[in-house]
Design a protein around this nucleic acid. Structure first.
Lengths: 134, 134
DNA sequence: ATGACTGCAAAGCCTTTGCACGCAA
DNA sequence: TTGCGTGCAAAGGCTTTGCAGTCAT
């Protein structure tokens, strides 16, 4: 919010609601899920807010294999997590790993890019699904 | 191809063309780009082929931030790469890093999932774009 | 008062599905 | 001959855009 104001944005209701709603979630949600979770907010406003928030690096989008993109808030504290997705049942499990982060930081610093974020997704079958044949 | 036949698929023309076309590419392409690169192949066949090939782990899909998902062939040799995407101009640069792979393997083995693949994407600004203001 | 923000609705675009024909086995 | 594979076209679903009204500054 303060970051929003600092970036020259007015404290409009819709965008603030999106940020706060995402802040309450444990893991990524799709734009449509966010829209459904905010009955008073128009769908277009949700998409517009997500676009702006992503540019401000307050929100990160990621592909969890579902039909739509997922969005989640970036923790200002710097801690963040990644995801393991079950390709059969769609379950998404977050994880974090400092060794992985260090490896990514090393790559980023050698890349010639001004890297602002990253995303890691593992895909496979969760415990229960790996015991099934189909 | 042999892997296709082994999986019980017939050597239909469209699917084989998709595999071979992807094998010729250096980096990920969207389904539409693949369709455009294969004039004789119907769009639906491209999507259907990609879906099957992804299940067979011959092709991997990934989100490079563009409007559509990207697809690229999985190198049978085991070598694979990840991507850095410029969030301003959309440029995609592949990279590989063994330390990163090891960190991911460690996470995978502790996850309780039967992990079959993974995807890493770094986002930021490429050299030229990082020198621009907007 | 000004212009950013919002909601609604329509349009856009990628992707999926239905259906009949063709070809591999 | 069987039915998997394919192409075309239409439908589906997520996302974006246009527009006028509203609200923060």
């Amino acid at each position: 919010m303060s970051a929003l104001q600092g970036a020259g944005y007015r404290s409009g209701g819709a965008r603030r609601q999106v940020v706060e709603f995402l802040g309450r979630q444990d893991c990524a949600l799709t734009a449509l899920e966010i829209d459904q979770g905010l009955p008073g907010v128009g769908r277009a406003s949700v998409y517009r807010a997500l676009e702006q928030l992503e540019q401000l690096h307050l929100v990160q989008s990621l592909d969890v294999g579902r039909d739509a993109k997922g969005y989640e808030r970036i923790d200002p504290g710097g801690e963040h997590h990644h995801h393991i997705v079950c390709s059969r049942c769609g379950k998404v499990v977050p994880f974090e790993d400092s060794r992985l982060e260090r490896a990514i930081d090393a790559v980023a610093s050698e890349s010639g890019f001004d890297v602002r974020g990253h995303e890691v997704t593992l895909r496979g079958r969760c415990g229960p699904c790996s015991k099934l044949r189909s």
